[in-house]
């Protein structure tokens, strides 16, 4: 098999970055991460790469390959055209640490702002029952491996100074998984409308395209949340009713009952 050419981003913040080319011998079934490991073992032991499971389950090895956010452990060399130079760069939405490693800690800060699972108090075990179909949607959201490729590709986060205004697709997925859990009693809609910045998403579906777990982020998580927010806050009949009653905010959901 002919060698593959990898063009790898090298650099640290504050230093001029450059691309370094490597010719890598190719074996059957190799993925980009294998090629990076070969480079580390034979050419550049100081190449910084973050990875762990090499089975597309831990979400560590996110980069941009030929400009597209992707897991290096899931990108097969055989999927590139023969002779094509494979350009590997760090995710651009997050601050660079070194080479292909970025600082993704902002995501973990955002995560803390979302109210965790809040079950009803004192419901006996015999009432913890629901149907499989009621949990399947939650299971879809819970497949997320937190690779943050969706956050990386999202133009709201990537191209604008909105990181404190919009929590991004990953955390709308997390919020949806909680909001749609049959036993959750919390009300996250005020948060999602205001601090969460759900309105910033204009449904370009880029996040869905790059998701390695094939979660239908836009259709199944974001749009339903937008609809819930619209129903509560922007329904014209409700707005008129609120004006007549002289109340400003919609009544919060009853606290001690479970959602349908």
């Amino acid at each position: 098999m002919p060698d593959a050419t990898l063009r790898v981003y090298r650099g640290t913040p504050g230093q001029p970055a450059h691309f370094q080319d490597f010719q890598v011998p190719v074996d059957e079934g190799m993925v980009v991460l294998d090629a990076l490991h070969w480079i580390q073992a034979h050419r550049a032991p100081d190449l910084a790469v973050r990875w762990n499971c090499k089975a597309a389950k831990c979400g560590s090895c996110s980069t941009e390959i030929n400009g597209k956010p992707a897991l290096t452990c899931k990108a097969r060399l055989s999927d590139f055209a023969p002779g094509e130079t494979i350009v590997v760069e760090p995710m651009r939405t997050f601050p660079l640490i070194r080479d292909l490693v970025t600082d993704v800690s902002w995501n973990y800060e955002v995560n803390r702002r979302i109210q965790p699972f809040t079950p009803p108090a004192d419901v006996p075990q015999s009432e913890w029952r629901w149907q499989q179909q009621d949990i399947e949607r939650v299971q879809e959201f819970r497949k997320c491996i937190e690779c943050f490729l969706c956050q990386d590709v999202c133009h709201v986060l990537r191209s604008h100074e909105t990181d404190n205004l919009f929590i991004g697709p990953r955390f709308l997925v997390r919020a949806a998984g909680l909001e749609m859990h049959p036993m959750d009693t919390a009300d996250r809609l005020p948060f999602l409308k205001d601090e969460g910045g759900t309105g910033y998403c204009n449904i370009t579906k880029c996040c869905t395209e790059v998701c390695p777990e094939h979660i239908k982020i836009t259709d199944n998580a974001i749009i339903p949340l937008k609809e819930r927010i619209a129903d509560r806050y922007y329904d014209p009949f409700r707005m008129i009713w609120r004006r007549l009653r002289g109340t400003k905010a919609p009544a919060p959901a009853p606290a001690a009952t479970t959602k349908a």
Binding site: F117, Q131, Q132, I135, M183
Partner: peptide, 20 residues
């Protein structure tokens, strides 16, 4: 397992709604 369920872990269900 029961505690995990109460922490929100979405276990698969039986037809009568219990943990499968």
């Amino acid at each position: 397992v029961i505690e995990l369920e109460h922490m929100g872990l979405p276990f698969n269900r039986t037809p009568d709604g219990k943990i499968d």
